[in-house]
Write a protein that binds this DNA or RNA. Sequence first.
DNA 1: TTAAACCCTAAAGCAATGTTTAAGGTCAAG
DNA 2: CTTGACCTTAAACATTGCTTTAGGGTTTAA
Lengths: 135, 135
Amino acid sequence: MYQIGELAKRLGLSQATLRFYEREGIIAPAERADNGYRYYNSLHERQLRFVLRGKQAGLSNSDMREMVHLKAHAEESTCREVKDIVDLKLAKVKEKLAELQAFERSLSDLSAACCGSDELATHCAILEALDEFVD
Amino acid sequence: MYQIGELAKRLGLSQATLRFYEREGIIAPAERADNGYRYYNSLHERQLRFVLRGKQAGLSNSDMREMVHLKAHAEESTCREVKDIVDLKLAKVKEKLAELQAFERSLSDLSAACCGSDELATHCAILEALDEFVD
DNA sequence: TTAAACCCTAAAGCAATGTTTAAGGTCAAG
DNA sequence: CTTGACCTTAAACATTGCTTTAGGGTTTAA
């Protein structure tokens, strides 16, 4: 059993973050001593690592709140529910990826068009490309 | 000369967004009639389209505020200044892209591991993958 | 007993990009 | 002169994921 500072150090998180996750229902509430201090054991740490792995995979706090719940109630939950969270997120990631790839191309094109020198910007190809060419 | 509702309609933006851009200094303030109403002409519209193209390319509001300024003061600005904005954003986009690609892979792997059926989640491969395997 | 190093809470703040709400003038038509 | 469609502002709200602040207990060692 150790205090929040110890757990924070082990996981590389701030104490505030741990309290935040607890408030948000992402992790189970810690046990409390009579003085109100939170106390943790290896199961708490394990659950936190579970959450951190999910976040590393791109899952959000609310995704992980659900995941933790499903894991804690695995007897009444299905693979489908678990996979749905992942697949939904995967679809969103792919959408964002497409958007960012479009950005990358646009920006590359703009960048390639401009000399980037100390020339006056009066004829800058980037400004021209973004501006309207009224014929 | 037309009012804000007309301009909003032409650009597919809300009136609130136009006022917001003005407040943020992204676009030049509209001319005002004696009653306080904003009035716009084709130059305003052109500047707005300039901003919208930049945003379509992934540039932020503050990027476009700078761009608009550089364009308005092109005589005292350089191509370098313009290109720097684009290149900085491009670098950030590439970073985010790498992060999202990592997410995509992680999520795909998780998804592929799970049957996604009505099976109880007690042995779900996703939950297992996120959980710690204590040997 | 006091100082350092722990811990607690509620609430506000930040980042970015708008949207929504509340309260209220203006204008043209009937 | 009233109605409906315009327009105005300031300020609050929404989203996500924390961080920071303010104010205050607890514990331990010197």
